[in-house]
Design a binder for these strands. Structure first.
Lengths: 297, 297
DNA sequence: AACTGTATTGCAAATTATGCAACACTGCAA
DNA sequence: TTGCAGTGTTGCATAATTTGCAATACAGTT
């Protein structure tokens, strides 16, 4: 006996019309017919007397109607009570993430969390995505939005948020680099800009090694994907970054994606905290907000 | 949110042990784990704090526990109330069925019905199964347990009970008939005993016509499948009857089934009443008892 | 380090729910 | 009497969900 079924029955009891009630609940009349039949089976009594012309509540149906309204009301009271208790939660939450994630993935999660916990103060530190796990480990922050490394230490709890494609990008402006990629594409001659370390860099190294194209011509290593995009846009070289960083960059029109260079494994982006932290009320509440948000997608 | 899920949660809240509670409810621990997770998703709050060693109720879990117990109690009160009202139902119910059905199919249905409606008086008329629909149509009875004819008139409501195989039977005693069927099996020479009319007879006629074996040597036609079985047992001929009649006959050891003579369509046995009668409280109650019984099988 | 017991999860299989389309049916109009 | 309109039901194929096996993760104990 689902709450959804109870809501349908309550509305049917008021309208006494299968078609209209079905439409109200965005189901087909045949579905509503079966929902009612299942309720009747579970209860062991007919709830309605009906044929193709008339629908009336039976005596059992009248009692069940009251029961159903009561359940739905108690459910709402329970949720109100729980949400109010949650709203009472106070304190400060330290979050670390990249600039891009601060634009792309954090806002809806924060909105959901703050809806439920308006009294909790958020302190956000942004920086290089590759530093995220270290920040968590040092307990400089409560949790971070981070890319999952190949081998995640067992001291962390990781909750998946999104799968992020990684791409190789080049400048769109006319420059030596662009000429190089449009003519003879010799990888070992093209200046490459890499992150200092982190999942994107590891992917590039792995990918380049697979290509077996000699030594990479590393022009620069930068701290932070966003800076990397800027350098590529300026014509300094080609680079490898998560797509979402490009999409959220003010210079996204000045870079282009290089396609057809084989598969680069996407990044598993998620929320990451220490195992020992996950039972802390604030962190637990945040994880619940994430799950609640994700189950509504 | 199913009542079953609530019951599981309530027991889990008491035992704080997934394995034991799963066993109590005859499900696997993985199922229980998921049931709880679905409740948590639906509620938007964690109900338990747990790892592989400890399970404790969260604050939300404590409130939900009270909510769940309340729902289950109210559900029981509702059912008690409805069943008590049903028990108040009085009157007389006239039922017609064959002798065999009176032994084979009616008892559990009557038991279920009388559990729920002890004050209702039952009047049972037994007779030839082929007369069942006529008795209903004449309103000599309220309903009958009958075989569904090929074309059921639209004035009847029919509720399926069982699918009854139909068989050809012969005597086991040493006699002329048995010698005939063991030697040259010439159908047109074997004495055949048929019901006067009804679904079994129609099936035989259809089946024999398909066999294209000349004119049937009809030795006798009898009123009632039970009498037919007796005559076959006495060596008077072979006959065609629903298997269940044989199974409930005192002379069942004196007849044998003739196999490998092609498919005979089984009988669709059910409860049958007039459309205009089905909303009568007593008849409606009986149909509800049937459905309740059937859903417990 | 190995073991034990417990809760969780990937995944294939089983089960249930859904909606389309057809059906059954009744009241009404022609 | 026939045809139509509107309504609720049902067979069945498909989609969605649930279940349990087996593997996994993990913490406490030895």
């Amino acid at each position: 006996m689902e709450l959804k079924s109870l809501r349908m029955f309550v509305d049917l009891a008021k309208s006494l019309h299968f078609g209209k009630t079905a439409e109200l609940h965005h189901v087909s009349p045949s579905t509503l017919s079966r929902v009612v039949q299942r309720l009747e089976l579970e209860l062991g009594h007919a709830l309605l007397h009906r044929d193709n012309r008339t629908v009336v509540l039976s005596e059992a149906g009248k009692q069940f109607y009251q029961f159903a309204e009561q359940q739905l009301e108690q459910w709402q009271l329970l949720q109100l009570s729980l949400n109010q208790k949650q709203a009472e939660l106070q304190g400060k939450l330290h979050i670390y993430c990249s600039v891009t994630a601060a634009y792309s993935h954090l806002p809806p999660l924060l909105e959901r969390f703050r809806q439920q916990h308006p009294l909790v103060e958020i302190m956000l530190t942004t920086g290089d995505a590759a530093d995220a796990l270290e920040q968590v480990e040092k307990q400089a922050v409560d949790f971070a939005i981070a890319a999952k490394p190949e081998q995640l230490s067992r001291i962390f709890t990781f909750h998946h948020l999104a799968t992020i494609p990684v791409s190789i990008i080049a400048p769109t402006m006319v420059c030596q680099v662009q000429q190089q990629i449009q003519q003879d594409f010799i990888w070992s001659e093209i200046p490459i800009i890499l992150p200092e370390y982190g999942p994107a860099r590891k992917r590039f190294e792995y990918w380049f090694r697979k290509k077996q194209q000699g030594k990479a011509n590393i022009y620069a290593t930068v701290s932070g994907h966003e800076a990397l995009v800027s350098m590529v846009a300026l014509g300094c070289g080609v680079g490898i970054v998560p797509r979402v960083v490009v999409e959220n960059s003010p210079v996204k029109d000045r870079v282009q994606y290089l396609e057809n260079f084989g598969e680069i494994e996407p990044i598993d982006l998620g929320v990451c905290c220490l195992n020992q932290s996950k039972d802390k009320p604030l962190i637990q509440a945040f994880f619940e907000a994430i799950k609640s948000y994700q189950s509504d997608q």
